[in-house]
Design a protein around this nucleic acid. Structure first.
Length: 467
RNA sequence: GGCGACGUGGCGAAGUGGGAACGCUGAGGUCUGCAAAACCUCCAUGAGUCGGUUCGAUUCCGACCGUCGCCUCCA
């Protein structure tokens, strides 16, 4: 894939644009991570999955990718949660930051290259605020520092808003204009995490952290800035104002926003309609959750629910069955190259890559993958099996596609770690079948099932796997 | 009030100005001792509603209805 082949939807232009690249051909991405005042929910995982996989796809397409994704570890809700739990706010943020990393690790998609914390970026933040003050784009008022929105001409470009049309929802007595937002918040009673600054003790406002951390990690004019669509206004709008105001050049070339997960309306911590990621992962394997995300386009709303997850599990199972069938065929391959199979798989691969290149259309990519799956199943079905070399190369093709989608687990060998009690039943069942004692055979199959395993009879003998 | 997204078969979900992918479910069949898996066949003359543009629209334009998001913290 060359840059002009890969296209992504840019929120700024509301249209698909060719993938931008840096001077050295790299793609730098900054993605807004969560505020860590509690365990994250499944909705928080959507951007994590999206950008982890986008990074994979871009790397596979030959790009050097740097992915930075922050953790917000100072904020009002953290103070509040810490007060509720009776622990220092820094300790609480540190704990939930760790849990965020542990929870997302379980998705098996790797980590971003950089995961900056706000509390490690205070000097950069203070420095950026000072530059904004110097340039007349910010002013101190009563211990706070505010961004002077009217002085930034492009304000509203990302979210498509005009200053005059916006409601006066957040007046604030010290502000010159109701939309001016805090860069630095003076310390209030009970706030136990704070730093000194030229404007007095306090801590950063919500938006400035991302401007400063993105700048520190990726510089200016980086390629992609991402996050949930609920961050477009005010968060990303304000980031642009701060970064471009302070640096005098563009912050990011292209803005990618994922739509929301829904659970009777947008899944949101403040609304309380959430399912924790760890709870979802206790109920479903990681690859099923990834499949669930993949089955809809990242710019579509996605309702979360048991039925959708169960369906994702069955779809994943179809792929797993195909890989198993392939491995069974490899144990007793034929000696013919099957041109029809080769053609089908090659076509599917091309379609797969095209779909991902077209605004990361994962449902389209899955469709292509399933076409390959069907072709493989048909080819492996009969006695006239493809040659070992062809089976190997087809298996590699499938594994590559699965890996790109974060579904590598579906191509993993089933694992021989069947418990001894199950193995004993399987052995007994083999004996019963040899003796054509089918009543006993069926009884043993049920017993095996009760232990959580499933046995299938194939021409090559019994096959056992987790149910 | 302002801005924006979306409405496709029983369910989920893509692409597309001219044959409506793919997955799940369902029906029939093949294989199997029986299952399971897999394979074969079938399941939207119609795409929220109503208009318009066009030789032709699900795809473009408009109106209306409906769902949702942002405008306050938010992935």
């Amino acid at each position: 894939m060359t840059p002009s082949d890969i296209r992504l939807h840019n929120t700024l232009s509301r249209s698909k644009e060719p993938l931008p690249t840096g001077p050295d051909g790299t793609v730098r991405m900054y993605v807004c991570g969560p505020t860590v005042y509690g365990p994250i929910h499944v909705g928080n995982a959507r951007p994590f999955v999206l950008f982890s996989l986008l990074k994979r796809f871009l790397q596979h397409s030959g790009y050097r990718v740097v992915l930075a994704s922050n953790l917000t570890d100072v904020n009002d809700k953290i103070y509040a949660a810490a007060a509720r739990e009776g622990v220092p706010s820094a300790e609480l943020a540190e704990r939930y930051g760790r849990e965020y990393v542990a929870d997302t690790d379980r998705l098996g998609l790797g980590r971003p290259d950089v995961e900056p914390r706000v509390t490690d970026a205070i000097p950069e933040i203070v420095d950026m605020i000072a530059r904004l003050v110097d340039r007349g784009l910010a002013y101190a008022a009563g211990g706070d520092v505010y961004f002077r929105v009217r002085e930034f001409p492009g304000y509203g470009a990302l979210s498509g808003r005009r200053l005059e049309e916006m409601l006066d929802t957040d007046p604030g007595p010290a502000k010159e204009h109701h939309l001016d937002f805090a860069l630095w918040k003076g310390r209030k009673d009970g706030e136990d995490t704070f730093w000194d600054s030229p404007w007095g003790p306090g801590r950063p406002g919500w938006h400035i952290e991302c401007s400063a951390m993105a700048h520190a990690a990726l510089g200016t004019d980086f390629e992609i800035h991402g996050g949930g669509i609920d961050l477009v206004f005010p968060h990303h709008e304000n980031e642009i104002a701060q970064s471009e105001g302070a640096d005098g050049c563009r912050m990011a070339k292209l803005w990618v926003h994922n739509e929301m997960l829904e659970l009777g309306g947008k899944m949101s911590k403040s609304d309380g309609n959430i399912v924790l990621l760890r709870d979802a992962l206790a109920e479903w394997p990681a690859e099923v959750l990834v499949m669930f995300f993949l089955r809809s386009h990242y710019r579509s709303k996605l309702p979360y629910g048991h039925d959708a997850l169960a369906e994702s599990a069955r779809a994943a199972e179809r792929i797993r069955n195909t890989v198993r069938g392939l491995d069974r065929a490899l144990a007793a391959p034929g000696d013919q190259l099957r041109p029809a199979l080769a053609r089908s798989v090659a076509e599917a691969r091309a379609k797969f890559a095209e779909a991902l290149a077209d605004d990361f259309n994962t449902p389209g990519a899955l469709a292509a993958l399933f076409e390959a799956v069907a072709a493989v199943n048909a080819a492996v079905d009969g006695a006239d099996r493809p040659s070992e070399g062809q089976l190997q190369s087809v298996r590699t093709e499938l594994a590559t596609m699965l890996d790109l989608l974060g579904l590598g687990a579906l191509a993993a060998p089933p694992g021989d770690d069947v418990p001894a009690d199950v193995a004993a039943l399987v052995e007994a069942r083999a004996a019963a079948r040899a003796a054509r004692d089918f009543a006993e055979s069926d009884r043993l199959r049920d017993a095996i099932r009760d232990l959580g395993y499933e046995v299938r009879d194939t021409p090559d003998g019994q096959q056992v796997g987790p149910r």
